[in-house]
Simulated assay, not measured.
Amino acid sequence: MLHLTMQQAALAFLVLITPICAWVVYTDLKYMKIRNKAVYALLAVFAVAGPFLLPLDVYAWRWLNALAIFALGYILNQIAHFGAGDAKFAAAAAPYFATGSDHILLTVMLLTAFLLAAFTAHRIARAIPALRALAPDWVSWTRKDFPMGLALVGTLWAYLLIIALAN
């Protein structure tokens, strides 16, 4: 087994998940859907690469993150109209996050920042006719709900980047 630092593991995960994240952002903007294939791909990367990038005990415990976030996402989907695709993506992304109090605080801060920034940027962009004309068939321009995949992807990507660049 490889003996990587947390920073090296985060960088490797970042490289592996970036195409999936780009796909999620695109499909959420265009169709307001996060495809199950993207969720499965994100889980598959963790399932296959995780044992090589993380100590086996850390890898195994991180699966609990997925179960906890899946349960929370299911509840939010039922009572707060949180998108099912968003809930599944969040659960698939959860194993990439460490669970120490510093990591949880960082994750909450990133999610808050990305929710505010992505919502604001999307609402401004859709109000500009020239930008809407670049992608006139995007469903997200006309729906009242928000493509939450933008914030979820931003949070995951930024978290891994911060960990990869940490001293």
Rank of each mutant, 00 (worst) to 15 (best):
F119C: 12
L14H: 11
A49Y: 03
A87G: 10
A22M: 15
D102C: 08
I69M: 11
S140Q: 05
F146Y: 15
A164K: 04
T5Y: 10
D28A: 12
G85I: 06
S140I: 07
V48G: 02
A22T: 12
I79Y: 15
L150E: 09
L72P: 01
L161N: 05
M148Q: 05
Y31V: 11
A118E: 07
D86Y: 00
N167L: 09
G83R: 03
I69C: 10
F146P: 00
A68Q: 02
S101W: 15
A164M: 09
L131D: 06
A98W: 10
A158V: 12
R143D: 12
A113S: 13
D57C: 04
L131K: 07
L106S: 04
L105K: 12
F82V: 03
G154F: 07
S140C: 13
K37C: 05
F146W: 13
V108H: 05
T107Y: 09
K144N: 14
L56W: 02
R35W: 15
N36G: 07
A12P: 07
N36Y: 10
L56T: 09
V39W: 05
A133L: 11
D28Y: 04
A133N: 14
P147E: 03
L72A: 06
V39E: 06
A9H: 02
G100Y: 07
A121N: 09
H81F: 09
R132F: 08
A87E: 01
P55H: 03
W141D: 14
A60D: 05
L67V: 12
A118H: 11
G149W: 00
L134E: 11
A12H: 09
T99L: 12
G50R: 00
L134W: 14
L42F: 11
P55F: 00
Q8S: 15
P129S: 13
